[in-house]
Nucleic acid binder design. Structure first.
Length: 262
DNA sequence: ATGGTGGTTCAACCA
């Protein structure tokens, strides 16, 4: 089962690109972030034509997440628990019923948190505490689990071409990185890192200053796997070619292959 | 220190 996560930065602005990419890559499950669309405005027909069932959790103008699946989607849940009054659409989860096993999949868009020292950064850290609490609950079910999305966290210096330039950025603060480590310490596996321990693996390149041409990237889109899913991990990669296409998202799709046989 | 880019929505916000 191939599962892809992609911060698409506006699903309507990126529809042609997305259809082209999905035809080529043919993932079974797609986790989208920053759809920047309400549910009624989501171009679901274009994805249904490719064979996907569509579940969205949208919001006007900003944020918004979705899960597309060629396999049956069950038990869809919207919103990260523990956020009374939190209106931001950053979490959707569902069970993908594969022929050889079910997987609980979440598409998440973790708050950016910039600038540091503001309520935005406090919201980011609070959201990460909620994420950890919910991850504990999901792990306790012992169902294979994939937490996929834009974490807005650069875990380590090797996850940036120029880490020194991120020193004052919310994505690379000690608190952000510690919270990400806290997720790993629950027993979750960073799938892309597990398959690609080498430096220079990036998932985001800023639109400005020719960052992509200089490969001035960062790795902030992650798929975290429960032990039950990590045991089935076959491969992972970044489809960075899309970043060089016309009118690209500033993020590239990241994919994993899980062997769910037996 | 500034400006550099882009989506959504409509002057401004977010990244």
């Amino acid at each position: 089962m191939k599962i892809t996560t992609w911060n698409i930065n506006g699903v309507r602005a990126r529809l042609d690109l997305a259809v082209t990419y999905l035809r080529e890559a043919a993932p079974d499950v797609v986790c989208l972030q920053e759809i920047k669309s309400v549910d009624e405005g989501f171009p679901r027909g274009a994805f249904e034509d490719l064979g996907y069932t569509v579940a969205t959790h949208g919001q006007k103008g900003f944020n918004g997440v979705a899960i597309l699946s060629k396999l049956p989607l069950e038990d869809v849940a919207r919103g990260l628990p523990g956020g009374a009054g939190d209106e931001q659409a950053r979490w959707i989860e569902a069970t993908v019923a594969g022929p050889k096993g079910a997987v609980r999949v979440a598409s998440l868009y973790l708050p950016n948190g910039n600038p540091i020292g503001t309520d935005k950064f406090a919201y980011k850290l609070a959201w990460m505490r909620r994420l950890k609490r919910h991850a504990v609950k999901l792990l306790s079910t012992e169902m294979a689990l994939v937490l996929a999305g834009d974490y807005n966290v650069i875990p380590l210096p090797i996850d940036a071409k120029r880490p020194e330039t991120w020193a004052n950025d919310a994505l690379f603060q000690p608190e952000s990185r510690a919270a990400f480590r806290g997720l790993l310490n629950l027993g979750l596996t960073d799938a892309l890192r597990a398959c690609h321990p080498e430096p220079g693996v990036y998932t985001f390149w800023d639109y400005q200053a020719g960052a992509f041409q200089k490969d001035d990237g960062i790795r902030i889109d992650h798929l975290l796997l429960s032990p039950e899913a990590a045991d089935r991990l076959v491969a992972a990669g970044v489809d960075k070619q899309t970043r060089g296409w016309e009118k690209p998202s500033d993020h590239a799709p990241v994919w994993i292959e899980l062997d769910l046989a037996g």
